[in-house]
Amino acid sequence: MNVQIRTVHFDADSKLLEHVNAKIEKLRTFHDKIISAEVYLKLDNFSQQVRDKVAEIKVYVPKHSYFVKHQSKTFEQSFDLAFDSLVNQVKRQKEKHLVH
């Protein structure tokens, strides 16, 4: 699986990157045919004083792709919420596929 992590308007520290990589690797337990994953970590509302942390995850599998986006006050929390939503999407899609 090819994993790309991109940061927008900031430089991520190694702890955050390790957290993201560890979680993304866990996706293999939910879907065994993942081609690639892209993670975008962004600072939102950049022109204002309040900066929300946004995490977007795109995952590509044969004939399908998944996308989730969450924002909160920390990158870890945003990424974890997005990851949980992604896992739910993957599980739902896999169950639909097994039923048919």
Rank of each mutant, 00 (worst) to 15 (best):
K23E: 06
E25T: 04
K53D: 01
V39M: 07
K15I: 02
K15W: 04
V50M: 10
L27W: 13
L17Y: 01
V54T: 03
E56K: 12
K53E: 00
A12F: 00
V39D: 03
L16A: 00
K33D: 09
N45R: 15
L43N: 09
D44Q: 15
V50P: 15
K33E: 13
L17G: 01
I35W: 14
I57T: 06
V54H: 07
V39R: 06
F46D: 13
D13Q: 05
A55K: 05
Y40G: 05
K23L: 11
L43M: 07
A55D: 01
K53M: 02
E38S: 15
E38I: 11
A12W: 00
D52K: 15
D32R: 14
E56Y: 09
Q49C: 08
N21H: 11
K33L: 07
A12R: 00
L16T: 01
L17F: 02
V8L: 09
R51I: 07
K15F: 05
I24V: 11
I34E: 02
V8G: 11
Y40W: 13
K15L: 03
L41T: 02
K42W: 13
I35L: 11
S36Y: 14
I57A: 04
E18C: 01
T29D: 09
A22V: 08
E25M: 07
V20W: 02
K26D: 06
H19P: 10
K53P: 04
Q49S: 07
I34K: 10
K26G: 08
H9D: 05
D52V: 13
D32Y: 13
I34A: 03
L41P: 09
V20G: 00
A55I: 01
I57D: 05
N45Y: 14
V20T: 00
D11Q: 10
D11C: 06
V54A: 05
K23V: 08
N45V: 09
D11A: 04
Y40N: 10
V50N: 13
R28E: 12
L16D: 01
H31N: 13
L27E: 03
F30Y: 10
Q48G: 08
F46L: 14
K26R: 13
V39H: 09
E25R: 12
L16N: 01
N21T: 09
E56R: 14
V8T: 11
L41I: 00
L41V: 00
D13T: 02
K26A: 05
I24Y: 10
F10G: 01
E38D: 10
S36E: 07
S14A: 01
K23R: 12
K33I: 05
E38G: 12
F10W: 09
H31E: 11
K15P: 12
L16G: 02
